[in-house]
């Protein structure tokens, strides 16, 4: 870990200004991912801006009946929130499927979105990695890839996004609200928040430097059966091989996002038209452009089969 300077920001404006003054600065909230990465010098911020003191830890109704979730709401609190459990069961289920109780107590809503990949080559600073060291190459290609991406991958990167929460938020059409250092506010739909790797896998989100996530907004409740099915090798405390976040209505229509397969929560709205035709049709449309490796091609059938189980559960 590199030595760094540290300050506490007491307001969004102060945090944004502090970030604007230092190109190497990072915000820190729960720190559950950032600190680990700093210890390995995968993240090397020269300055940390602790945002835990900012008043963004509440969950409120929006004017149109949706929900505004403060960036600093802890994952445990969000999962346990009565409104979330009643109206957005998918989100609650996805949250408790992730990490451990201890980590969820620390981890925040914004921080969860900003988790970095768990690709083992990303985690080993001896190995070339285009995320860590742009242009150095991707050691995962041709290497151990069982956990890595099958769709939206590039010649530069096979990484997946590890979050469960983000997959649910993608299915729920959440919007990320931010403030830039110049005070400009943005609303970024989840669809656009995470990026595909392309030739710049080190750029993972739509955020600009110093841009600060203030809230995540969920639209008004959409009902339906809300199911989060996470498939993993061990029963708990493991990243998804594949996860399916689904909202299925009684007429068979719905919304589906998939985790564990891509650099971002994977959802193709057009593919959802196939939902009434069943899991195979839907999965085929969703993963039509998949380019799996020999080691991870099982994720294609696993996605289809998991989706089938979810659709069956939704009917039952």
């Amino acid at each position: 870990m590199r030595a760094f300077t540290y300050e506490r920001a007491s307001s969004v404006e102060a945090a944004a200004v502090a970030a604007a003054q230092n190109a190497d600065a990072k915000f820190i909230a729960g720190g559950t991912n950032l600190l680990d990465l700093m210890k390995l010098e995968i993240e090397k911020p020269s300055h940390l801006i602790d945002v835990n003191g900012i008043d963004l830890d509440t969950i409120e109704r929006t004017q149109d009946g949706g929900l505004r979730i403060g960036a600093l709401v802890r994952n445990t609190d969000l999962a346990a929130d009565v409104t979330v459990r009643r109206d957005y069961g998918l989100l609650s289920r996805a949250l408790v499927a992730g990490a451990s109780g201890q980590l969820r107590n620390k981890a925040t809503t914004a921080g969860n979105l900003l988790q970095r990949t768990r690709c083992p080559y990303f985690y080993d600073p001896n190995q070339p990695c285009n995320k860590r060291n742009p242009g150095s190459g991707c050691s995962a290609i041709g290497g151990v890839t069982r956990h890595l991406g099958v769709v939206g991958v590039s010649e530069a990167c096979l990484a997946t996004h590890p979050s469960d929460m983000a997959v649910a938020m993608r299915a729920l059409d959440a919007v990320v609200e931010t403030v830039k250092p110049n005070g400009e506010k943005r609303s970024i739909p989840m669809a656009d928040f995470h990026r595909l790797p392309g030739d710049t896998p080190h750029i993972e989100t739509a955020l600009e430097h110093g841009e600060f996530i203030t809230n995540v907004v969920l639209p008004s409740p959409i009902g339906g059966k809300q199911i989060y099915r996470k498939v993993r090798d061990r029963a708990s405390y493991a990243f998804a091989l594949v996860s399916v976040a689904a909202v299925i209505h009684s007429d068979g229509s719905g919304k589906v996002a998939v985790g564990g397969v891509a650099h971002k929560p994977w959802r193709i709205e057009a593919a959802e038209a196939e939902l009434p035709n069943g899991a195979r049709a839907m999965a085929s449309a969703l993963l039509a452009d998949a380019r799996p490796t020999e080691e991870n091609k099982f994720k294609i059938s696993l996605t289809e089969r998991t989706l089938a189980a979810v659709l069956s559960e939704a009917k039952g």
Binding site: P120, S236, F239
Partner: peptide, 10 residues
């Protein structure tokens, strides 16, 4: 995180 050993749920 990469080498998974059993947890209680297993």
């Amino acid at each position: 995180a990469g080498y998974e050993v059993p947890v209680h749920a297993d």
